[in-house]
Design a protein around this nucleic acid. Structure first.
Length: 868
DNA sequence: TGACAGTCAATAGA
DNA sequence: TCTATTGACTGTCA
C-alpha cells in the first residue's frame, strides 16, 4: 500500500511537473515565434524576442559574474571536493523550438482510436523528466554558482542531464542513461570494478564498460588535472577532485568570442562526429585532448548536444573547442593522425561561427597524441552514435529522422499520448516482414540491446505508465515508422554490418565494429585481447540461473508475500541457497515484470475491447473509467486513474486474456500438464463459446471494478463507478441469462461452495497451500465482504481462479478431484500454451495481491461499499 | 533505504 | 541466427 501510495504521489508529482513543463514550453514557443526559423535543425536559440533577450542578457550577465567568481575561486581553492552549496532557484533556459519534424505520430485519442498526424509543429522540450528537470535546475544553479572544486564536472554532470537527445545517435548505452545520464552507460558494477582493478590505464584498456566507468567517474570528477585524470578514473566517483581539467578552461576572452553568437550545436556536433568517424578518432582521446572531457561527456555532447542558448559559458566551452578543432585551430595532434584525412569535409568550412585564434590554452590542451589508434578510436567514437551497428549508422545511416536529432526527449516531452501497443505492433510487423532483426533495429534505431527491444516490443507499457525516459524508445519507434526510408536504411545497415563482420572475421578489421560491438564492452576495444581482458573474462561473474524449483519456490513466496520482509528474504535465501541479493532482485524483477505484463496486456485488451466482439459492458466500463477519471492533477480519482485502470486491466487480462480469446478461437485445446490448476478446476467445465466466456468474465470485471471504485473513489465518483459497474453487471446478467445460464448456475453453486470455504482471514494460512495467492484475493476483505455479490454472479472466483503455481498441490488436487462441484470454473479455457496459463496465474496472483492490499487499506472505511 | 523504471547482457529456446 | 527470458545493475525518488 505504501508502494502504491508512493506511486500515486509520484504520478501526481510527475503529472504536475509535466504540465508545468509543457506549459513553459508552450509559452516559450508562443513567445518564440519570431525566432529565426531559418536555422536548420538548430535547437539553438536565436531569440529575437525582446523580453527574452532582455532576460537572456541578464542571465548571461549573471553568468559572467558567476563565472568570474568561479574563476577567482578556482585560483584560490585547490582540489576541493564536493561541497553542497545552497542554490537559489534559477531560471531554466528554455529551448528555442528546433525545427525538427516528427512525422506521423500515432496518437492515442481519448476514445482510444489512433490518430496519425504529422506533427511537424511539434515543439520540443528540453526536458528529461519533470523530476530531472527540477534537479537539473538545481544542478545547473550549482554549476553556475558552483563550488570551485567541482565546477567543471558539475557543469557537465548537470548540463548533460538536460541535453536534448538526438534521435539518430542512438547508443544503447547512452540511451540508457538518458534520464540519469550517467553511467547507465551500462554498468555492471562488478564488471566495472573488475575493469578498474585490472586496468592500470584507461587508455590501455579499451573495454567499453571500463570506458563507461571512466565516463562515470570523469563525469563526476569532471575535467581534472590532466595528469591525474587517468588515475582518477579508477577511483570511485566520490574521489576528491582536482581542479584542473585536462584541458585548461577557455579564457573569458574566448568565451566572449562566442558567447553571443548563435552556434548550431547540433550541426557542429554532427560535423565533429563525422570527422571523428572518418578519421577514426577515438572519443576518449578527443575528449581528453581536445575538449578536456571524458569520453562519456564527449559522447553525451555529441549525441545530445544542448542548444546553444541553453548552454552556460562553461557549457559552451567544449563546443567552442570543437569549432576550433574542426577548423584545425586547436592543437592538431589528433587531427594529424595518419588516419585522419583532413580532407574530410571539415565542418569548419561550413560552420558559421568564427574561428577564434588558437590560444595557448588550446595548444596546451591538444598536445600531439600519437597514441591514437584507428581501430580503437573507430569504435569508441562510434560509441556515442550507437554501438556497433549504430556506429555504422553514424556513417552510413546518418539518421532516419534527421530532424529529430533536435532532441528526442524534447519530442517525447511534447508528444501526445502514443499508442505503444500499436506502435510496437507495427514495428514488429515491419521488422518481421522485412526480415530485420531486433538487434539491428534496437541498436541502430532505439539505442537498445536486443533483449530490451524484445522486451519493449512484446510487452509495451501503456503510455501513461511510462516515464519520459521510458517513452523515448516508443517515440523513436514512431519516428522510425514514419520514415519512408526506414527499411532501406536499416537494410543498408545490415549490409554494412555484414561487411564489417566479414572484414573483421578475415582479419581485415581486428576490432569489432559489427554485431559483437553491440554492447559497450567492445567500445574502444583494443584490437587484440589484452591480458587484462582475459582476467576480466576469468573474473567475470557467472550469471545466476535459478533452477525451476527455486523459481517455483520464489513464486510461491511471492504469491504469499509480494513484498517480503528482510526476514523472509533471508529465509528464502537460506532455504534456496541463494544470495539474498538474488532473492531481492528476483522479487524486484518479478514484481516489475508482472506489473508490466499485466499492464501491457490490459492495454492490449483495451484495444480488443474496441472490437465488436468484445464485451460491451466492459468496454463501456472501460470508457466510463476513462471518463470518470479525469487527469486533473489535483483530483484524487485522477491520480488514481492509472491505478484503477491498472487494476481493471489486470483483472480484465486475467479474466479475459487474449490467450483465452485465442484459445476460444482455436477450439478446445488439449490440456497440458501444467495447466493442471485450470484443468483440475475445469473438469466439469466446457471451454464453451466465446460469448460464454465473455459473460462469465464480464461480471467479475464489473464487480471488481465496483470494488475498486469503492476502494478508490470518493463521493459521487464512487457512485458513478458503482453505477457503471452495476451496469456492467446487469449486462453480464443478461448475457449470462441468455448465453450461459447453465454455466452461471454452476458458477453459483461453485461460488457458494467456494465462498463457504473461503476464509477471509486466511491470508497467511492459505499460503501454506498452493492456492494461496488467488484465494488470498478471494478471501480478501473485499471479497469476503461481498459474498452476496459473489454469489449472485460468481465469476469473481473464476476470475480469481486458484493460481496454484505449477507445482501440483495435494490439497488442491484433492479438493478438486474429490469435489467437482467445488471446482472453480476457469475464466477461460486452458490455452494451448501452458506457460501462458501459468503466467496468467502468476499475474493473477500479483493482481490479487495488489488488490488485496488496496482493499485492505480501504476496507475500513469502505466496507459498506463493498456490498450492494 | 526500499521501490521502482529502465536497461544490459547472458542464456535459453526456436 | 534471431528472439525471449531473466538475473543483475544504475539511477531516481520519496
Amino acid at each position: 500500500m505504501v508502494c502504491i501510495t508512493l506511486n500515486i504521489d509520484q504520478r501526481k508529482r510527475r503529472k504536475e511537473l509535466s504540465q508545468e513543463i509543457r506549459k513553459k514550453i508552450i509559452d516559450k514557443h508562443v513567445k518564440g515565434e519570431t525566432k529565426d526559423s531559418s536555422a536548420p535543425l538548430s535547437s539553438s536559440a536565436s531569440s529575437s524576442n525582446g523580453s527574452e533577450d532582455a532576460i537572456k542578457n541578464i542571465l548571461e550577465q549573471a553568468r559572467r559574474e558567476m563565472h568570474a567568481q568561479k574563476q577567482a575561486l578556482l585560483e584560490i581553492e585547490s582540489g576541493s571536493s564536493h561541497r553542497s552549496i545552497p542554490t537559489p532557484p534559477n531560471e531554466r533556459p528554455i529551448l528555442s523550438p528546433p525545427t525538427h519534424r516528427a512525422p506521423h505520430v500515432y496518437i492515442k485519442q481519448e476514445d482510444g482510436s489512433l490518430l496519425t498526424s504529422t506533427s511537424s509543429t511539434q515543439t520540443p522540450l528540453s526536458v528529461l523528466s519533470p523530476a530531472a528537470f527540477v534537479q537539473s535546475i538545481i544542478r545547473k544553479v550549482k554549476s553556475e554558482i558552483g563550488d570551485a572544486g567541482s565546477y567543471f564536472d558539475q557543469h557537465w554532470a548537470s548540463e548533460k542531464n538536460i541535453l536534448s537527445r538526438p534521435f539518430t545517435s542512438v547508443s544503447p548505452s547512452l540511451s540508457s542513461s538518458s534520464s540519469s545520464y550517467s553511467s547507465m552507460v551500462n554498468g555492471r558494477p562488478w564488471k566495472k570494478v573488475e575493469n578498474i582493478e585490472t586496468s592500470q590505464n584507461e587508455e590501455e584498456v579499451s573495454n567499453g564498460e571500463e570506458s563507461h566507468k571512466i565516463v562515470e567517474i570523469k563525469t563526476e570528477s569532471g575535467s581534472q588535472d590532466g595528469q591525474n585524470m587517468n588515475q582518477l578514473s579508477y577511483y570511485p566517483a566520490y574521489v576528491p577532485r582536482n581542479l584542473k581539467p585536462t584541458v585548461p578552461p577557455l579564457t573569458p576572452e574566448q568565451y566572449e568570442l562566442y558567447m553571443y553568437r548563435e552556434v548550431d550545436t547540433l550541426d557542429l556536433t554532427r560535423q565533429v562526429k563525422e570527422k571523428l568517424a572518418k578519421n577514426g578518432i577515438c572519443q576518449r582521446i578527443f575528449g581528453e585532448k581536445v575538449l578536456g572531457l571524458s569520453q562519456g561527456s564527449v559522447s553525451d555532447m555529441l549525441s545530445r548536444p544542448k542548444p546553444w542558448s541553453k548552454l552556460t559559458q562553461k557549457g559552451r566551452e567544449p563546443f567552442i573547442r570543437m569549432q576550433l578543432w574542426l577548423t584545425d585551430q586547436l592543437g592538431q595532434g589528433i587531427t594529424q593522425q595518419p588516419a585522419l584525412s583532413q580532407g574530410t569535409a571539415s565542418p569548419s568550412e561550413t560552420h558559421p561561427s568564427p574561428s577564434p585564434p588558437p590560444s595557448p590554452l588550446d595548444q596546451e590542451k591538444t598536445p600531439p597524441e600519437p597514441v591514437i589508434l584507428s581501430s580503437e578510436s573507430i569504435k569508441e567514437n562510434q560509441q556515442p552514435e550507437s554501438r556497433s551497428v549504430s556506429s555504422l549508422s553514424s556513417r552510413t545511416f546518418p539518421s532516419p529522422h534527421p530532424a529529430t536529432t533536435a532532441g528526442i526527449q524534447e519530442i517525447v516531452a511534447m508528444s501526445p499520448e502514443l499508442d505503444t501497443y500499436s506502435i510496437t505492433k507495427k514495428v514488429k510487423e515491419v521488422l518481421t516482414d522485412n526480415n530485420l532483426g531486433q538487434r539491428l533495429f534496437g541498436e541502430s534505431i532505439l539505442g537498445l540491446t536486443q533483449g530490451s527491444v524484445s522486451d519493449l516490443l512484446s510487452r509495451p507499457k501503456p503510455w501513461h505508465k511510462l516515464s519520459l525516459k521510458g517513452r523515448e524508445p516508443f517515440v523513436r519507434m514512431q519516428l522510425w515508422l514514419s520514415d519512408p526510408h526506414n527499411i532501406e536504411k536499416l537494410r543498408d545497415m545490415k549490409k554494412m554490418e555484414k561487411k564489417a563482420y566479414l572484414k573483421r572475421r578475415y582479419g581485415l578489421v581486428s576490432v569489432g565494429s559489427d554485431s559483437e560491438s553491440s554492447n559497450t564492452r567492445t567500445d574502444c576495444a583494443s584490437p587484440s585481447l589484452q591480458p587484462q581482458d582475459y582476467n576480466l573474462m576469468q573474473m567475470k561473474k557467472p550469471r545466476v540461473v535459478l533452477a525451476l524449483e527455486e523459481k517455483e519456490a520464489l513464486k510461491k513466496a511471492y504469491q504469499m508475500e509480494p513484498y517480503p520482509t528482510q526476514q523472509t528474504i533471508e529465509l528464502l535465501s537460506l532455504q534456496l541457497n541463494l544470495k539474498t541479493n538474488t532473492v531481492i532482485n528476483w522479487f524486484h524483477n518479478y514484481r516489475s515484470r508482472m506489473r508490466r505484463e499485466i499492464l501491457m496486456e490490459g492495454q492490449h485488451d483495451n484495444d480488443i475491447d474496441q472490437e465488436p466482439d468484445s464485451c460491451d459492458s466492459f468496454t463501456s466500463a472501460t470508457v466510463s473509467h476513462r471518463e470518470l477519471t479525469p487527469q486533473s492533477p489535483d483530483s484524487e480519482i485522477g491520480d488514481r486513474k492509472p491505478l484503477i485502470n491498472d487494476l481493471k486491466h489486470m483483472l480484465h487480462k486475467n479474466c479475459y486474456s487474449k490467450e483465452s480469446r485465442t484459445a476460444m478461437k482455436i477450439k478446445k485445446e488439449n490440456m497440458e500438464e501444467d495447466d493442471y490448476d485450470f484443468t483440475n478446476h475445469c473438469k466439469s467445465y466446457d471451454p464453451g463459446t466465446p460469448s460464454r466466456t465473455c459473460c462469465e468474465l464480464e461480471p467479475s470485471r464489473a464487480l471488481r471494478e465496483k470494488q475498486v471504485a469503492s476502494s478508490h473513489c470518493d463521493g459521487s465518483q464512487r457512485l458513478h463507478y458503482l453505477r457503471k459497474s452495476n451496469s456492467g453487471l446487469e449486462k453480464c446478467h443478461q448475457h449470462v441469462a441468455h448465453d450461459c445460464a447453465a454455466s452461471v448456475h454452476t458458477h453459483k453453486e461453485i461460488m457458494g461452495a467456494d465462498m463457504s470455504q473461503a476464509d477471509p482471514i486466511s491470508f497467511k494460512s492459505s499460503i501454506e497451500s498452493s492456492r494461496c495467492s488467488l484465494e488470498v484475493s478471494l478471501n480478501s476483505p473485499s471479497a469476503a465482504s461481498s459474498p452476496g455479490l459473489m454469489m449472485s454472479v460468481s465469476p469473481v472466483p473464476s476470475c480469481s481462479a486458484p493460481i496454484s503455481p505449477s507445482l501440483p498441490n495435494p490439497m488442491l488436487t484433492k479438493t478438486h478431484s474429490s469435489s467437482p462441484s467445488s471446482d472453480m470454473v476457469p475464466l477461460h479455457p486452458p490455452t494451448k500454451h501452458s506457460p501462458n496459463n501459468q503466467r496468467r496465474n502468476e499475474k493473477m496472483a500479483n493482481l490479487n495481491n495488489i488488490i488485496h492490499r488496496l482493499e485492505r487499506a480501504a476496507n475500513k472505511e469502505e466496507t459498506l461499499e463493498w456490498e450492494f
